[in-house]
């Protein structure tokens, strides 16, 4: 149990997939302009991550590995992720058309969110069990959520009228991501001695 908690905290904070490993920056910057879209985006990403992680884990251990087809894994995993995203998109469109419009292109783009492929590849590379893979995926999703919620609130606070013209909008947002990554860098090493 303790090691599962450690995996969760490590994926969410110490090795945050966005701010420490720099994966998934595109939806991170793209959907953080409005605070309202961040929580739905996090839930969608976390759902895709969890389903895709479990599916790719089973696919790898019961189909690819027994037949020596590991070299096909990136293609196979992307197909699995795309299917998960399609399913999520259909669900969001039916459940909340407004939310579907707010998330726009970024919802289908979860397919190409490298954090999702990154998590499933890391889980397979490290030979994590099914339970650990699921916890890693949930932790990565939670870490994405922590980062994007904080980032959206920071972006709201930045007063664009006061910012020098060339830096308004995305440029200063990227400077802000840099400082956020700096803050998370301070957590480096925590939990490393405990066999994560």
């Amino acid at each position: 149990m303790a090691d599962l908690l450690l995996i969760l905290l490590s994926a969410a904070l110490v090795n945050n997939f966005v701010l420490v490993q720099f994966l998934g920056l595109c939806p991170f910057v793209g959907t953080s302009a409005r605070f309202e879209t961040t929580v739905p985006m996090t839930l969608a990403t976390m759902f895709v991550l969890a389903v895709a992680a479990v599916a790719t884990n089973l696919l790898h251990h019961h189909l690819l590995a027994p037949f020596g087809l590991e070299y096909l894994r990136i293609i196979a995993f992307i197909v699995v992720i795309a299917a998960c995203v399609q399913f999520t998109e259909l669900f969001v469109r039916a459940a909340s058309p407004l939310l579907h419009r707010m998330l726009g292109l970024y919802l289908p783009l979860i397919t190409t969110n490298c954090a999702v492929l990154g998590v499933v590849l890391i889980a397979v590379d490290e030979g994590l069990s099914l339970a650990r893979t699921l916890v890693l995926a949930i932790g990565a999703g939670a870490g994405f959520g922590v980062a994007i919620v904080a980032f959206a609130a920071l972006r709201e606070r930045i007063n664009d009228d006061a910012v020098p013209a060339p830096l308004r909008g995305v440029p200063l947002a990227l400077v802000t991501v840099g400082f956020m990554a700096l803050a998370f860098h301070g957590l480096r090493g925590i939990g490393a001695g405990m066999g994560a």
Partner: peptide, 27 residues
């Protein structure tokens, strides 16, 4: 950070992490 992290003093990073939470709390 002092006890378990790899930086000698955690004050700077701890304050930055606190700053990250401030806009969410004010919101």
């Amino acid at each position: 950070i002092r006890a378990a992290g790899s930086h000698p003093d955690g004050v700077a990073f701890a304050v930055l992490l606190g700053n990250l939470a401030t806009p969410v709390l004010d919101r």
